[in-house]
């Protein structure tokens, strides 16, 4: 299979994750909680896959999120591209084989993205402690979940590719 094949496969995996997280949030809604898993969607593209494929996937996933969110259209596209860039930047600064490094980078990406989103959506009315309590709670909740699941999610994708004949680990050690 071509390189495009594995990108499509990973894209579909992440699209599936996008819908699964939607389902999870359907259930979490009754607890007044929301899990933002944006970093997980971009993580594999940023850390392990090629440039163009990652760029296109991040953009398309951004469009998916944008089209159903009541934010200025394009916020998520720009956000996902920024996250992808951040991960690219982080590639050389961490050991991608080390699960703590990957978890940490994913959590940091998620954290920065949510802080950015808070600032974008910030308004005069939001200047109260209740707002920041809720925001911090949501950031903490999402960041912790991203930290917990980041490595498993990457490993799952790597294993999936490995089982289909792409050895990401080997490619990384060649670079």
């Amino acid at each position: 299979m071509s390189d495009n094949g594995r990108i499509s496969l990973i894209f579909i995996c992440n699209l599936l994750l996008y819908f699964l997280v939607g389902e999870l949030n359907f259930m979490l809604g009754s607890l007044s909680l929301h899990f933002h898993a944006d970093a997980l969607l971009i993580l594999f593209f940023g850390l392990y896959l090629g440039r163009l494929g990652g760029l296109v996937s991040a953009t398309i996933l951004g469009f998916f999120a944008d089209s159903v969110s009541p934010v200025p259209y394009g916020t998520y596209v720009i956000g996902y591209l920024s996250m992808w860039l951040f991960l690219i930047w982080g590639q050389k600064r961490i050991r991608r084989q080390n699960h703590t490094h990957v978890r940490f980078l994913a959590a940091l990406t998620q954290f920065f993205w949510m802080v950015m989103l808070s600032i974008v959506i910030f308004s005069q009315d939001s200047m109260n402690t209740v707002y920041w309590n809720r925001i911090l709670m949501e950031i903490l909740f999402s960041t912790v979940l991203v930290y917990v699941f980041a490595w498993s999610w990457c490993r799952f994708q790597k294993n999936l590719l490995y089982s289909l004949g792409w050895n990401i680990e080997a490619e990384m050690s060649q670079i």
């Binding site: 440039r51 163009l52 990652g54 760029l55 953009t59 469009f63 998916f64 944008d66 089209s67 259209y73 394009g74 596209v77 720009i78 591209l81 920024s82 992808w84 860039l85 690219i88 930047w89 590639q91 050389k92």
Partner: peptide
């Protein structure tokens, strides 16, 4: 990294100059 950054910048520029009806179109499509 620099190439990626360049690509993103190019993409954002493209996004900036995209007519609003195209943007609206993508929104509906997605």
């Amino acid at each position: 990294q620099a190439k990626s950054l360049l690509l993103v910048v190019l993409l954002l520029l493209l996004w900036w100059f995209t007519p609003s009806f195209v943007k609206r179109g993508t929104e509906v499509i997605f």
